[in-house]
C-alpha cells in the first residue's frame, strides 16, 4: 500500500491516462444563521475512469458536499470542476440534468426510491427519462433485478421491501442506464453489517464488470478499504490520497 499526499498539482504517477474529472481548488460555503459557513476550503482532485473512490471523514468534514458538487446537484462557490476538460460551472441546469441522466447514477443512504412506484418501475425510471420505450426499459430493469437477485420482489412497493432490498433496487436503478459515474452517499449507512457487505459486493461487482467510476461517501473504514482509492477529508480539506496496491498495480 502506497501513500501520496493529495497535492493540487496532479500526481504524475497517474497522469498517463486523461482524468475524467478534474477538481481544482474547490470552495463551498453556505449561509448559516446569516453568516457564511465554509465547508470546503480548497479541494483539488483527479478522478479517472473505472476508479472506485471512498470519501471519508467525520460529520461536517464536507464529504457529502463534495459529492453533491461533483454530481452537479449544487453550485460551487469558488474553484472549478472540469469534466473531460470542460468546466461544469458554465453548464446550465438542463445541461447538468442531461449529463446526469446520460452518464451518472445515484445511490443514497436512505435509498430515495419513489414510494408510489414498484421496484421494477423505480429501476426503469432512469431509462424512461432517457427516452427508452416502456417495454425495453422493463426488460433491462428485470435483468438488473435478476442480477441483484431481487427479481421476485420486482412488483413490490418500497415499503414492502427490507432495507437491503431497497438499497439493491436503488443500486439497480443507479446502474440501469450503464452510467460512467456512480455517486453513492453512505449506501450502507442504514444497513446491518451483513447486508452492508452484500450491497457493497453488488456495487463493486458492477463497478468491475462495467468499468464504472464509483465515488462513495462513507464513514465506515472497512467499506473504504475495499475501494481502490481512499480520500479522507478533514475540515474541508483533503487529508491524503490512499491508493490500494491492487489499483497501483493496475495503473503501472
Amino acid at each position: 500500500m502506497q501513500t501520496t499526499t493529495a497535492q493540487p498539482t496532479a500526481p504524475t504517477a497517474t497522469s498517463t491516462k486523461e482524468a475524467l474529472m478534474e477538481v481544482i481548488d474547490l470552495h463551498k460555503s453556505y449561509l448559516s444563521g446569516g453568516r457564511p459557513l465554509e465547508i470546503l476550503k480548497g479541494v483539488s482532485l483527479h478522478i479517472y475512469r473505472g476508479e472506485s473512490i471512498a470519501l471519508t471523514g467525520a460529520s461536517g468534514s464536507g464529504k457529502s458536499t463534495l459529492l453533491s458538487l461533483l454530481a452537479g446537484l449544487d453550485r460551487v462557490t469558488q474553484g472549478q470542476i472540469l469534466l473531460r476538460g470542460d468546466a461544469m460551472q458554465a453548464w446550465d441546469e438542463d445541461r447538468l440534468a442531461r449529463w446526469r441522466r446520460e452518464e451518472v447514477g445515484f445511490v443514497f443512504q436512505d435509498f430515495r426510491l419513489v414510494k408510489s412506484f414498484t421496484a421494477l418501475e423505480n429501476v426503469s425510471l432512469p431509462l424512461e427519462i432517457l427516452g427508452w420505450d416502456g417495454q425495453k426499459a422493463r426488460q433491462r430493469a428485470e435483468e438488473l433485478l435478476e442480477h441483484l437477485s431481487i427479481l421476485p420482489r420486482a412488483h413490490h412497493f418500497p415499503h414492502q421491501l427490507s432495507g437491503g432490498e431497497q438499497q439493491r433496487v436503488a443500486i439497480a436503478r443507479a446502474y440501469a442506464h450503464r452510467p460512467l459515474l456512480i455517486f453513492a452517499d453512505e449506501p450502507t449507512g442504514n444497513l446491518d453489517p451483513e447486508t452492508s457487505q452484500q450491497v457493497l459486493d453488488s456495487l463493486l461487482n458492477i463497478n468491475d464488470e462495467e468499468q464504472t467510476t464509483l465515488i462513495m461517501v462513507t464513514h465506515d473504514m472497512s467499506v473504504a478499504q475495499r475501494m481502490k482509492r481512499h480520500i479522507p477529508l478533514r475540515a474541508g480539506r483533503l487529508e491524503e490520497d490512499i491508493r490500494s496496491a491492487k489499483d497501483e498495480g493496475a495503473k503501472a
Partner: peptide, 19 residues
C-alpha cells in the same frame, strides 16, 4: 413533502425541469 422528494430525485436522475 412527497412531491418535493420526487422532484429532487427526478432532477438528480437527470430529468429536466420542463419534463
Amino acid at each position: 413533502r412527497e412531491r418535493r422528494e420526487k422532484v429532487a430525485l427526478m432532477r438528480a436522475l437527470g430529468c429536466q425541469y420542463r419534463t
